[in-house]
Computed example of a mutant assay.
Amino acid sequence: MESTNALECLTALAHEHRLALFRLLVQAGSEGMAVGELAGATGLAGATLNHHLNQLRQAGLVADERQGRVIRCRANYNRMNGLLDFLTDNCCAGSADVACAPRASGSCKETSS
Rank of each mutant, 00 (worst) to 15 (best):
D64Q: 14
H15V: 10
E16G: 07
R74D: 04
L53K: 02
L53A: 05
S105K: 08
T4K: 11
E16D: 10
D89P: 01
T88P: 01
E2W: 03
G46V: 00
V62L: 10
Y77N: 07
C9T: 05
A104D: 12
M33V: 02
L13K: 03
R74P: 07
G106D: 03
A59M: 04
R79I: 07
R23A: 14
S105M: 10
N50M: 09
G82E: 13
S95K: 08
G40M: 02
N78H: 00
A45M: 08
A14Q: 03
L25I: 01
V35C: 00
M1N: 09
S95P: 11
F22Y: 15
A28Q: 08
V98Y: 05
A104N: 11
A34F: 05
G106S: 04
A63F: 10
L61C: 00
N76W: 01
R74G: 00
T88V: 07
R103K: 11
S112Y: 07
Q67R: 15
N50Q: 10
T11F: 11
M80A: 15
A6E: 00
D89Y: 12
A34V: 09
Y77S: 06
F86C: 09
T48M: 05
D85T: 13
G94V: 05
A39V: 03
F86M: 10
M80R: 09
P102W: 04
C91K: 13
V35R: 08
A99I: 05
N81F: 06
E65R: 15
E2T: 10
G68V: 08
M33A: 12
E16I: 15
G82C: 06
T48V: 15
C73L: 12
M1A: 14
C100A: 15
L10T: 08
G32K: 08
H51T: 12
C100E: 09
V62M: 04
V26E: 12
E2L: 14
T88E: 06
L25P: 04
G32E: 06
A63N: 14
R23W: 02
C108V: 14
N81L: 13
R72C: 13
F86S: 02
A28C: 01
T111G: 15
C108R: 12
A75N: 09
G40Q: 02
L10V: 09
R79G: 03
V26Q: 11
N54P: 01
A59Q: 04
A28L: 04
V35K: 06
T11A: 15
I71S: 11
L38G: 00
